[in-house]
Amino acid sequence: MKPMNKYGLFLLGVLAFASCKKDNYDAPSSQLTGRVVYQGEQLGFEQNQVTFELYQSGFGKTGPMGSTFKQDGTLNALLFNGTYKMIVPNGQGPFIWPKTASGAPDSLVINVNGSQSIDINVTPYYMIRNLQINGSSSTVTAKFDLEQIATGADAKEVEEVALFVNKTDFVSNSGDHKMREQKKPASDFPGLTNISLNAEVPSVTPAQNYMFVRVGVKIDGVEDWLYSQVQKITY
C-alpha cells in the first residue's frame, strides 16, 4: 500500500464522519393531536374542507403551516417543540371562531413540548341532537333534532338538512363522498325537531353488507356543512 492511499483513506474517513452531524436536523417528533369540540362533543366536517393554520414566529418571515381537519373533527400534526399560534381562517367551518377587533381570526396559543392532545372549544351554529340511524339492506332512516347554539347577532338560519350514504367511510356532500342522499329544506321541519330523512341503500359491486351514513346540516350563509359522526350500518 502506498503512503498516499493511507492518507487518502484517513482523510476520507474524517470527511465521512464529519459530514454526519451538525447540518442535519432531526425530524419533528412531537405529535399534536386535537379535536374540535362543543361542550366535549366532537363536531363533524367534510374531509379536508375545513382548514386551520399554525404559525410559529421568530424565524424570519411569518408564514402559515396550513392543514385541514379530518372529517371526524380531529387534527394531527408532527411539530418541533415550541410555541405555536393556531387560527381557523375566516369563512371556514360551520362554527364561530373568535375574531379580533379588526375582524382577523383570533389566535389560539399552543405550547408544544412533547406529544400532546388538545381540545379546541368552538361555538357551532347548531348541534345535531338525539340522532338515531337505522338501516336495512334497502333503506336507511335517520331521526334527529337540531339545537340552535349561536344566538343573537351570530344566529343563522338552517338552509337544508340531508342524509348521505356511501360505501366507504368518507361520507359528505362532496360528489364522490355520497352514493345516495336525501335533502330537505328546513322549512319542512318547523321547530327543527323530529327531523326524519330516509335514503335508499345502493347495491354495489363487489357486494358488501355494510354502508356508511351520516346526516348533515347546511347553515344559511356558511359554506361548510356541519355533520354528525359517520355511522356504519351492517345488514
Partner: peptide
Amino acid sequence: TGVNRFQLGNYYSAIGDDIRAA
C-alpha cells in the same frame, strides 16, 4: 369521475403565502 365544485373561496384566487409573508 370527478365533479366541478366551485367553492366560495374560489371566487378570488389565493395570494401566495410567500407574497403575504414578504
